[in-house]
């Protein structure tokens, strides 16, 4: 049993009041609108490039210009492929850029940033520039990443589809094309590899299935504050109406 003296009671009362004050201040602080955003970024060349521990690329510049009028305290977190969605679901980041997985059930901002077009990469000497000429695929062995959604033009052609398994299916497919083990490789977005900065693909050239594209979005965490979502979503729409990212990239 504990007996409290008058002094003990006074101290107890004081500490209780202090605790109460702390709780009120804490709650008050919690109810103020904190303007910070954690943005996870996954490398997506040539739009987003990781170099010397920095993120660069026109998409990064565009997003900066979109967000800067909102005066958010923005923290950029570089993430490896595949980690972005996990961090988003855990709430460790508020937004993920870019996001193009149509199979996942993830919320996104309404406006797509751009629309990559899938295509085929060939050794340059075997290049087929116009992929609507599907009769030219007859008996070509085309590597496809296992599970990747394949466009109807290729699926319905007489190409021999060769599934490539594993997380590195794309780089393996490209390597197999380069050594001539397969005739072509199906890439969901060949622009990511077929660009002038990529010295590793000098022997390849890619062409596109125009008319078969999916959007690339900014994904948002299920824990992102609704107010933040609305503010950023409206700002992106406004910016896209003035100049789309695709045009910004092309200029």
């Amino acid at each position: 049993m504990i007996f409290l003296t008058h002094r003990d009671t006074e101290n107890h009362l004081k500490s209780s009041l202090n605790f109460l004050l702390f709780c009120i201040l804490f709650l008050f602080a919690g109810s103020t609108y904190s303007k910070s955003l954690k943005i996870g970024i996954v490398e997506y060349p040539p739009h987003l490039i990781f170099q010397n521990n920095q993120v660069s690329g026109k998409l990064f510049d565009y997003i900066n210009s979109v967000l800067s009028p909102l005066n958010y305290d923005v923290e950029i977190i570089r993430l490896p492929n595949g980690r972005g969605v996990l961090e988003l679901k855990k709430g460790n980041i508020d937004m993920l850029i870019p996001y193009d997985d149509v199979t996942e059930d993830i919320d996104t901002l309404a406006s797509p940033l751009f629309h990559p077009v899938p295509g085929l990469c060939f050794k340059k000497e075997n290049f087929i520039p116009i992929l609507s000429a599907t009769h030219r695929f007859k008996e070509l062995t085309v590597g496809v990443p296992l599970g990747a959604p394949i466009v109807a033009a290729l699926k319905n052609s007489e190409a021999i589809l060769f599934e490539i398994k594993g997380d590195d299916a794309i780089s393996r497919g490209i390597a197999l094309t380069q050594i001539g083990r397969i005739d072509a490789f199906y890439h969901p977005s060949p622009a990511q590899v077929y660009h002038q900065e990529n010295k590793a693909y000098k022997e390849l050239a890619c062409s596109y299935f125009h008319g078969y594209s999916n959007g690339v979005f900014i994904a948002v965490s299920p824990f992102m504050k609704h107010k933040d979502f609305q503010v950023v979503d409206a700002r992106l729409k406004e910016a896209m109406a003035v100049m789309t990212y695709s045009y910004y990239f092309a200029k």
Binding site: V117, H195, Q196, T244, S246, Y247, F249, A250, K251
Partner: peptide
Amino acid sequence: QAMVEVMEDNRVLFNDDE
């Protein structure tokens, strides 16, 4: 703008000297 974007989409191909 869409015309400019189409040309940009083909930039790498246009500049592929091989």
